[in-house]
């Protein structure tokens, strides 16, 4: 038995070919997208050139051009970067809030826990995405920041909070927590230094699976027009070109690369997440 959670996770990934491949492909893609995006002159890439519109793939434009005459490959790189940004921010912020809320609520109980459970029950009542759509359409001067804030507050942390709360309750019933209490350790120290390290593997696998899910959700919302603002290139926006039948049938270069990229990225992350999930549960480990 190994105690170092990170070592267990890495070993589980290394022994799972798909997870290892997924991790490598994901890291390579993310690094490529971010460095490539740095080399693109954004204002130049955004200039509309009507004479060049809807060109099929060619030597100068490997993925063709969009209805504004812009290079689709450049748009794809910028879109991917923007979509990755929002997904990372959303998932990281969601994890931090979810862990804090779940840990404190599960450990201290009382009124805080009651309030949290009421909020989470309220959420369980209807499709949360509907409420997000309502909120998004109500905000007058809507920007990337407001979208990020809305997604963080209304979507990103609830599942994690629920999970961490339950796991904290389970840990809190164990004697090592009682022991720390009798030894005069501060309750905050107990929750963060004693309990939290025991949840590392659960948190990591949950984070990874959330990352994949949030990519899909962001794409879906942006596709419907309730995601990243219109002026911000994003994968969902590129995929939304397919909503016009003419684009769908005759110009697949507009939307297909973005669709495949998002699918591939989610697949990679899910493969990694599944391996981490096994690492979090000693009974399911392969090695």
């Amino acid at each position: 038995m190994e105690t170092n959670a990170w070592k267990v996770m890495w070993r589980e990934i290394r022994h799972d070919k798909l997870a290892l491949l997924g991790l490598i492909l994901f890291v390579v893609t993310v690094v490529t997208v971010y460095t490539w995006a740095l080399t693109i002159d954004q204002s130049a890439a955004a200039i509309v050139n009507v004479r060049n519109m809807n060109q099929p793939p060619s030597r100068t434009h490997p993925l063709g051009t969009d209805p504004g005459g812009r290079d689709v490959l450049e748009q794809l790189v910028l879109s991917a970067r923007n979509s990755f940004n929002i997904t990372f921010i959303m998932t990281i912020a969601g994890a931090i809030i979810g862990i804090l809320v779940g840990l404190l609520s599960g450990f201290f109980g009382g009124h805080l826990d009651n309030v949290l459970m009421r909020i989470l029950d309220f959420y369980a009542m209807f499709p949360a995405l509907m409420l997000i759509i309502v909120f998004i359409s109500m905000i007058p001067s809507y920007s990337v920041v407001t979208f990020a804030v809305l997604m963080i507050v209304l979507w990103s942390w609830q599942g994690t909070a629920r999970l961490i709360r339950i796991k904290t309750l389970q840990q809190g019933a164990l004697d090592y927590v009682s022991a720390s209490k009798t030894m005069g350790t501060h309750p905050l120290v107990i929750s963060f230094r004693e309990v939290l390290p025991n949840l590392v593997s659960i948190i990591t696998s949950n984070f990874t699976l959330n990352l994949a899910m949030n990519m899909g959700v962001e794409t879906g919302l942006t596709f419907l027009g309730f995601g990243l603002p219109f002026a911000t290139p994003s994968l969902g926006r590129l995929i939304a070109y397919a909503q016009m039948p003419a684009n769908m049938t005759n110009r697949p270069w507009l939307w297909l690369p973005a669709a495949l990229l998002i699918f591939l990225m989610m697949l990679c992350v899910n493969f990694v997440g599944q391996a981490l999930n096994r690492a979090a549960d000693a009974k399911k480990r392969m090695v």
Partner: peptide
């Protein structure tokens, strides 16, 4: 895994 990783809109399109 494929199904889990496929955004609904992408698969629909």
């Amino acid at each position: 895994f494929l199904a889990l990783s496929m955004p609904t809109v992408v698969f629909s399109i």
